[in-house]
Amino acid sequence: MPSILKEAAETAFTLAKGFSVTLRTLFRPTVTENYPDEPVRFEARYRGIHVLHRDENGLEKCVACFLCAAACPVQCIYIEAADNTAETRISASERYASVYNIDYSRCIFCGYCVEACPTDAITHGHGFELATYNIADMVYRKEDLLAQPLKPPRT
């Protein structure tokens, strides 16, 4: 019965071949990340939730030029601009964004806004946990996007 023998040999070979992959991988370093039990690692250019940056004096870099909104292919950025006054200075320039909303139910994370920004005020951060039960919660306000203020200088 050569056909039975041949079949047995082939099965044994296939098993050996298959388990050799398993065995090889068993001794390789682990790549699986234990999110959410452990923090996620990102590549440097990962495009996550935007961050609105501050300059070295802690003032907002955004001057509300609307170029990000103009560049945005899905119109997810909404801005209202306002005038800086001597008493309340928000940005280093004469104007600042009094309202800056990004609608993440629309955003496609293309990064055009980052490219358009003349003051490097907006970049992609590494935030990604956007899931929510309410679509209205997908609109992030300026307060949600703004980088933390610098620590006050030590006296």
């Binding site: 509300a64 030029c65 609307f66 909104a69 103009a70 209202e80 601009a81 306002a82 004469e94």
Partner: peptide
Amino acid sequence: YRYKTRPWE
């Protein structure tokens, strides 16, 4: 119109 918006908006 000062620092309110942009023409395309």
